[in-house]
Amino acid sequence: MTETPLVQAEQAVLGAVLLEPRQLGRLAGWLRPEHFYRPAHAALYAAMLDLRAEGHPATKAAPNVAVPLAWVNDTREKAGTHVRGLTAGYVHSLASTCPLPAHAPVYGRMVLEGAIHRSVAQHAIRLHQAARADATRGTRVAETLHHAQVLSDVLDDLGRRWGTERHGGQAGTPSAAPSTGQGSADERVLSEEESLLGTLATHPQQMREVVGWLRPEDFTDPGYAQIYRALGALHHRGEPIDQLTVLWECQRRGALADGTLDADRVRQVCGSAAGGSAGYFGEQILDASLLRTAAASARQIRDLADDASLAPGQLISQAAAALVPLDEARRRRSAADADPEPQEAATAKTGVPLASRAAAARARTSAHRNEAKVPPSTPSARSAPAPGAGRAR
């Protein structure tokens, strides 16, 4: 049976150390037993490191001195205490599989490269499984957040070990993932989305609780996302919020023309307030979005890890980029757990009270509408943009 290139690389690096124990000094600082795919190979390499640490004579021999048979036997005996079925014949055959002992660092790098792909794939699978499990349990995200952090830490460690700097790069943003839970979970999230929108339309003062961390992309229903976008625009401009103003804003944004929404649905959603806290509904929606994002990122990273043509540096960099959307969702969830920004803090950032900012926004909008009604009286008036027109748009 023909061995895979990875297994051949493991055999070659072990054979190189059996033939020239001093090669271990060129490997010990960065190649570890857990980087080997086969348990028997990992046990043999661990035994070699232990014998070197214990000061085995073979590891201190001069380059031209013949390697004692005790080196091979002691390695097999120590490794045999951790794995079964390790025969003397197999250990001796490893020496014949090594093309050139001096190339041990190159063979070791091949082993490490395989370990990097394997490790990234394993942690991506665990993240995906955690996201699915959390979604099934009802959008609890603790397990998913844990595995997301573990995967991020693994990429950092592998980047340092391989000698490449991890950076987010240009993220290949994961495509929108379908809900990772069952049908009942889908219905629950849709119900929470509708409850949030109805609450915000009826009690617009609660927009302050969610606008800083909840995004339209967090909604599963495209129509609900458009309504939330309209609510956010009205809140940002400080304009009144009710069924009619939301409907008008949806129309201005093309949501009625492209068929995403119709007027009856907008009115129905805006009048569907079931009571409760917008912050609570928003957190449930964000958690569901985070789980979908985690599942999509995990699938993308797993596909990258399965691509043997990617060099480790490329894999680490692209995997880090695939985590960018999830990292952003995690930051927003941390913001959701924090207290809403008090009015005094918002004033301190800009130097303008919230009420004054809202009044200014309304004034700009009114001025823009009045200007639109007055026809220009001179050619120069027609060619010059109205002051503040760009801001009003």
Rank of each mutant, 00 (worst) to 15 (best):
P178V: 07
G159I: 03
A104K: 03
L100S: 10
S175R: 14
H146N: 07
T87R: 09
R161W: 00
S119A: 14
G89F: 00
L155D: 04
L127A: 06
L112T: 03
L100D: 12
L86S: 09
V141E: 15
R109F: 07
L158V: 02
H117K: 13
H146M: 10
G85Q: 03
A176E: 14
Y90L: 09
A176Y: 01
V150Q: 12
L158C: 07
H128F: 10
V111P: 09
G172R: 11
V154T: 13
H117R: 15
P174S: 15
Y107I: 03
A131P: 03
P174H: 06
R132M: 12
G163H: 05
R140P: 00
T87K: 06
H147K: 10
H167D: 11
G85H: 07
T97A: 14
L100M: 12
V106G: 04
H103F: 14
G168H: 09
L94T: 03
G172L: 11
A95K: 09
A176Q: 13
G169C: 07
S175E: 13
H103A: 15
R126P: 00
A104P: 00
L94I: 01
V111I: 05
R160E: 12
T97C: 08
L112E: 14
V141G: 01
R109V: 04
T164Q: 10
H128T: 05
R132W: 00
R126C: 00
L86W: 08
I116S: 04
A95Q: 14
G168E: 13
L151A: 03
G89Q: 14
L127I: 03
A135Y: 06
A102M: 10
G85I: 05
H123L: 09
L155T: 03
T139D: 15
G168S: 12
V106P: 00
R166Y: 02
W162R: 04
A104D: 04
G108S: 05
D157C: 07
C98Q: 03
T136L: 15
R132S: 14
C98H: 01
Q149H: 12
R166S: 08
T97D: 13
